[in-house]
């Protein structure tokens, strides 16, 4: 079983962040970076698939500047076999630019499965996985929460609103991963030490043409402070009036 997992280095969006002076990107000051949440689930899924198969390798791939090596080494610390950095000065916003680089790298790699997170937690585009599948000419199943592989075919489950859908598909294939497959393991301390000795190849990314550019980013407006309009039953008429005229929810 040979699995590639494509992972993105993203800022931790739970921390406070500011928008940079150009208005088009986050201000890098004070940001902490880590593997995108769903990509962590994808690494876990890849490790489990190879563990179940009893043999094979998990290759982690990331497009971006030298800093992505830290993210790749985290995945190596979790247990991935080797890593590939597709070097680019910055991580392009346009999914097509990234997908072209990944497809060029992975197309002839002999992978049974190429895994992605359902989406990157910073840009939330959900495009790179499906685009890579298209460029590789293989089937793509998105946002799966369960995955089995047997006899050259995959069976995956997708959670829909109020239902679960099971799809089957031939390998090789691209699959994007939702949370259900199992929480990403922490890199063990021995794993962290071992990661330093695992192969990490660096090659220039053959980026595709980007046709999207970010015009500007804006933070949501501050929520106005709450207001106390009165107490007890006496306040109800005024509350109803405001819900009708101001909040316009009634």
């Amino acid at each position: 079983m040979k699995v590639a997992v494509c992972i993105k280095r993203v800022p931790d969006m739970d921390l406070r962040f500011a928008i940079g002076s150009d208005g088009k990107a986050l201000d890098p000051a004070g940001l902490k970076f880590d593997i995108a949440d769903f990509d962590g689930y994808a690494v876990e899924a890849g490790l489990r698939l190879v563990e179940q198969a009893g043999a094979g390798e998990v290759v982690v791939v990331s497009v971006g500047p030298a800093a992505v090596q830290e993210t790749l080494r985290k995945a190596l610390g979790m247990g991935a076999t080797r890593a590939i950095q597709l070097e680019a000065a910055a991580i392009p916003f346009d999914g097509m630019a990234v997908a072209a680089a990944l497809a060029a790298e992975l197309k002839d790699g002999g992978f049974d499965l190429v895994l992605f997170g359902r989406m990157a937690t910073d840009s939330a585009n959900q495009t790179v996985g499906p685009m890579t599948a298209h460029l590789m000419g293989v089937p793509c199943v998105t946002a799966i929460s369960k995955l089995d592989v047997a006899d050259g075919r995959g069976t995956a489950e997708r959670q829909l609103e109020g239902a679960a859908e099971t799809v089957t598909f031939p390998l090789p294939a691209v699959v994007t991963i939702d949370e259900g497959l199992g929480r990403p393991r922490l890199p063990s301390l021995k794993g962290i030490m071992a990661a330093k000795k695992k192969p990490l190849d660096v090659r220039p990314a053959q980026l595709g043409t980007a046709s999207l550019t970010v015009d500007h980013i804006a933070l949501p407006p501050d929520r106005p402070p709450g207001r106390i309009i009165g107490e007890g039953a006496d306040a109800v008429p005024e509350l109803i009036r405001l819900l009708q005229t101001e909040a316009k929810v009634l």
Partner: peptide, 23 residues
């Protein structure tokens, strides 16, 4: 134990993580 918290600065040959003292 599985993550290697015990005796983590002792050598790997004894089943430890072999970390430096800052780690």
């Amino acid at each position: 134990a599985e993550l290697g918290f015990f005796g983590a600065n002792l050598p790997e040959e004894y089943g430890c993580a072999g970390l430096n003292n800052v780690a």
